[in-house]
């Protein structure tokens, strides 16, 4: 995935689209946007930075996971098998990008209780408990179900400024590869050797 920081307006559409797609409970953010202010007057810069799992080629989370619940698929997407996770959270501590979320139990967004307050909440709970679980770690999986159907991940689909581009990094002719090449795309924390699969195009 490539994210153009020049285009991101910090509207949080990606965050909401992700929540709508995966029905993540309160406190669980697979996609989020953080804001940074830097510089000194009169050259202050405010920058939005969308964050999600970097689906690294050398994932720290996969190395430290003691159960084998975190796996890297042949297509490079890193997934968590929630039925194998024990909730030790070593992965969440070892991930340099803060991409992993632990949810001790499902709670309703409006009442904060374990009992769903509406039909939609009941549907959300059912979907979440089936796809993830309580007491385990979860994270962005590039909407693997959508990608397998030939669709774009929900955050890419929802971005109103088209700041996000999804594609095959191994194909040098793909749009993502071309963007990285032409606009000098960069990874976050390359010094950790994780070889992240999310690249950022500089804002300036």
């Amino acid at each position: 995935m490539v994210i153009d920081l020049k285009r991101c307006t910090s509207c949080h559409s990606c965050t909401v689209a992700c929540k709508a797609e995966h029905h993540t409970p309160p406190g669980v953010f697979w996609a989020k946007v953080v804001r940074l202010e830097s510089g000194k007057y009169p050259t202050v810069v405010r920058q939005a930075l969308p964050l999600l799992c970097m689906n690294c080629k050398e994932p720290e989370c996969e190395k430290v996971c003691p159960t084998g619940a975190t796996k890297k698929r042949p297509d490079g997407i890193v997934i968590v098998d929630s039925k194998q996770c024990v909730g030790c959270r070593y992965c969440a501590v070892a991930c340099p990008y803060g991409a992993r979320n632990f949810s001790s139990d499902w709670t309703d967004y409006f009442t904060g209780e374990k009992k769903p307050s509406s039909e939609f909440a009941a549907h959300s709970k059912k979907k979440w408990m089936k796809e993830s679980d309580k007491g385990v770690v979860s994270k962005c999986n590039f909407c693997v179900d959508r990608v397998e159907k030939g669709l774009k991940p929900a955050c890419v689909n929802a971005c109103p400024t088209e700041a996000r581009t999804f594609g095959d990094l191994d194909d040098p002719e793909s749009e993502v590869s071309q963007l990285i090449k032409k606009r000098r795309g960069m990874q976050l924390h390359p010094e950790y050797g994780t070889d992240a699969s999310v690249y950022y195009l500089p804002a300036r």
Binding site: K63, V64, C65, P66, T67, V86, Y90, V136
Partner: peptide
């Protein structure tokens, strides 16, 4: 008591090759 899913504790021993938690246990 700490684990989120204590009933699956036996899985903690499965990856000593790369995980210090597996090695430690």
């Amino acid at each position: 008591l700490y684990l989120g899913q204590p009933s699956r504790f036996y899985r903690l021993f499965l990856k000593p090759r790369t995980s210090w938690i597996s090695r430690g246990l």
